[in-house]
Structures are given as C-alpha cells and as structure tokens.
Amino acid sequence: MADRILVLGGARSGKSIAAERLLADVPDVVYVATGGDDSGSSEWAERVAKHRARRPATWGLAETIDLVPLLESAGPPLLIDCLTLWLSRTMDRLDVWSDLSRAGEVETHIAALAEAWSATPRHVVAVSNDVGSGIVPADAGTRLFRDLMGRLNTTVSLASDQVLWTIAGRILPLT
C-alpha cells in the first residue's frame, strides 16, 4: 500500500511548502492543482505563479477536481493542493451555495474521495486547510462549508498513514 500523507494547517501556515518538500527528491510527481481558473484576478495569478516557480521542472501538472480517477490509477506520486479548493469547487459544481439542501451530494463526493484515498496504489500527499478553529460563521452557507471541510479532513485523516500539522512554517506530526 502506498503512503498517504495529509498536511493540514491554517492559511499561509506553510503547508504547501511542507508538502512539496516531502516529495522534493522525487523527479516524476504529478502536481494536482484543484484551484481552477480565477480569470482576471491578479492576486490569484500571483499565488499560482509562486507555486509554479517552486515546483521542479520535472513534475507534471493536472488541473482538476476529478481526484478519484487519479487516485484509482497507478502512476507516479501525487501532490494534491488542495482539498479545501476541491471542496469549494465541488460545492460550486453541485450548486450547493444556492441550495444548501444539496449538502448530501457533497457528502457522497467526500465518501468517494475517501474510499479512493484509502485504496490508492500511489504515494500521495494532500494539502488541506483546517478552518474549524475560528469563530462560528454568521451565514448558513459558510457554516456548511466549515462543517463539510471538517468532515473531509477527518475522513481523509483517518485513512492516512501520516498526518502533519503546519504552523508558522513548522511541522508537527499528529498521532
């Protein structure tokens, strides 16, 4: 069974850099970018450019939220950055923001992702934000996102071989 590593942390905690370092000596990683295209946003373009500049030229790139087929197939290691954007874009795709009652459909996608994560033949590292340590959001949609993010992180964490927490650029293993 392949190693499955989840790297958690808050915004700008160093989790992406930590995940990249875990695979730095592997020449044929597939970097899975789940962020999508935010056309017209110079701030987003700058973030993407920084991530690209840090990656070795030998790494491949897959820009998708269709993670299950990647996890189910054999191949080089995957670095998934990040599950938070995967959740947000999955909620967009299912139009959950306009109809919160569709949350069950998202839970189905989370379960499928966790099953594929558990059985993947690949070495895989995923990055995700821990958003549950802050205040309770005022609106129902943001509360739902926070709750689903917690469920996603918990489900993937429990199916992982290793879970790391990043804070201020430091890495702490979670047991």
Rank of each mutant, 00 (worst) to 15 (best):
E46L: 01
L94S: 12
C82M: 08
S101D: 12
L87T: 01
S98T: 15
E107D: 15
G75F: 03
T108K: 15
W59T: 05
R52Q: 11
S98P: 12
K50Y: 10
C82D: 08
R93W: 12
E72N: 09
L61G: 08
P69I: 04
I80P: 00
A45N: 10
D95F: 13
D66V: 01
P69Q: 01
K50I: 13
L61K: 00
L71P: 00
D92F: 14
D99S: 01
I65Q: 07
V48F: 06
R55G: 11
L79N: 07
L85F: 13
G75M: 00
I80S: 05
A74Y: 06
L87W: 02
C82P: 02
R47F: 10
V106M: 04
T108L: 14
P56D: 09
T108W: 12
D66Q: 01
W59I: 02
D81N: 03
S88D: 00
T58C: 01
L113S: 15
I80W: 04
A74F: 09
A62T: 00
A49M: 07
V48Y: 03
S101I: 04
R102T: 03
C82V: 09
D92S: 14
T90M: 12
S73L: 10
A112W: 06
V48N: 01
E46S: 04
A49C: 04
W59E: 03
D95V: 14
